[in-house]
């Protein structure tokens, strides 16, 4: 047998002596902290996973819906809105050159326009 194998075989049979084993046990038992809580039965874990996924799905739906609401003005029939606009302001700007008409329109809107004006004007 090789020397190394002989030595390791002998060493494997030799155990170090643990002095004061009872004192060590006592020391461990006295210092035991709070146990970590179990995650519970497997089916409970499955329920948690499902509810978490459902919550994420609902959040995605919510934000998707909000984005859709913000984009809705794009769906407005601009042809109809333009007609309404032209009929409303035709009296005021008909006799003015286009550049002046535009300047006056901007001035007028600057003083009057608010989000509620826009909303009421475009009726949404």
């Amino acid at each position: 047998m090789e020397k190394m194998d002989e030595i390791t075989r002998r060493l494997a049979l030799q155990q170090p002596v643990l002095k004061d084993a009872d004192a060590l046990t006592e020391c461990i038992m006295v210092n035991l902290p709070q146990q970590k809580k179990s995650l519970g039965q497997p089916y409970l874990r499955a329920v948690r996973w499902i509810t978490s996924i459902a919550a994420v799905f609902l959040l995605i739906l919510f934000f998707g819906q909000s984005r859709d609401l913000v984009q809705r003005p794009n769906d407005i029939d601009y042809g109809q809105s333009l007609q309404k606009f032209q009929s409303d302001y035709s009296q005021t700007f008909d006799n003015l050159p286009p550049r002046e008409a535009f300047r006056q329109f901007v001035e007028m809107k600057r003083s009057r326009t608010s989000i509620s004006d826009i909303k009421s004007h475009y009726s949404f």
């Binding site: 461990i28 809580k37 179990s38 995650l39």
Partner: peptide, 9 residues
């Protein structure tokens, strides 16, 4: 032993 106790779950 303390780790064993804490992580038994």
């Amino acid at each position: 032993m303390i780790k064993v106790w804490v992580n038994f779950a």
